[in-house]
C-alpha cells in the first residue's frame, strides 16, 4: 500500500497545496518508488505542481465527477450525492470537500481502502489548527498563493507516515 500524492484545492479552483511523493504521470521516471515507504517526510516535492497541467486535470476530473454525481442523485434534495473516491488502474483518488469549498485529495495505490477519514482528520486537526488559527495565514488564498507553513507540511507528512495501512 503506497501513498502517491496529496492535494488541496480551494473554492476558487486554485491548487493551494500539492505534495507529491510518487509522480503519477510519465514526466518523472520514478515508478520504482512504489514500494511501501516508512517515512515520507523530506522526500518528494512540495508545491511544485500547483500550476501544472496535472493539478488542473485532477481538479477537472473531480469537478466533472461531482457534477455528474449530483445530477444522478436518486434522493433529490434530502441528501447530496457526494463524491467519495474514484479509481483507475494505476491509482485511487480519495476525496473530501468541506462546506467552505476546500477540496482535499489523496492519491494512493488502487487497492487502498477508503481514506476519507484521513482527509477529515487533516482538515480538522491540521488545517484548522495550523492554518485557520494562525493569525498570519490567509483564510482565502489569492491566485499563486500556496500553503508554505512548515508546521502544517511536517504535520501532514508525519500523520500520513503513521497510518497503519502504509506501514506493512
Amino acid at each position: 500500500m503506497a501513498v502517491y500524492s496529496f492535494w488541496i484545492f480551494d473554492r476558487h479552483c486554485n491548487c493551494i497545496y500539492s505534495r507529491e511523493w510518487v509522480a503519477i504521470t510519465q514526466d518523472k521516471p520514478d515508478h520504482q518508488q512504489e514500494q511501501t515507504q516508512k517515512n515520507i517526510t523530506n522526500t518528494g516535492t512540495i508545491n511544485a505542481r500547483n500550476q501544472d497541467h496535472v493539478a488542473k486535470l485532477l481538479f477537472g476530473a473531480i469537478f466533472s465527477l461531482k457534477q455528474i454525481s449530483s445530477k444522478l442523485n436518486p434522493q433529490e434534495e434530502t441528501t447530496a450525492n457526494n463524491l467519495k473516491s474514484f479509481s483507475t488502474l494505476k491509482y485511487r483518488c480519495h476525496f473530501f470537500e468541506t462546506g467552505t469549498g476546500l477540496k482535499f485529495c489523496l492519491l494512493t495505490d488502487p487497492k487502498t481502502e477508503n481514506m476519507q477519514f484521513v482527509l477529515k482528520e487533516i482538515y480538522a486537526k491540521l488545517y484548522y489548527e495550523k492554518i485557520v488559527k494562525n493569525v498570519l495565514s490567509p483564510v482565502d488564498f489569492k491566485e499563486n498563493e500556496y500553503i508554505d507553513n512548515e508546521v502544517f507540511i511536517t504535520g501532514v507528512d508525519n500523520y500520513i507516515s503513521s497510518l497503519a495501512v502504509f506501514n506493512n
Binding site: 494562525n134 493569525v135 498570519l136 495565514s137
Partner: peptide, 14 residues
C-alpha cells in the same frame, strides 16, 4: 497561546 500558533515570515514583528 496566540503567538505559538503563529507561523510566517512576519512572526517576530506581529
Amino acid at each position: 497561546r496566540l503567538i505559538s500558533s503563529m507561523y510566517g515570515p512576519d512572526k517576530h514583528r506581529i
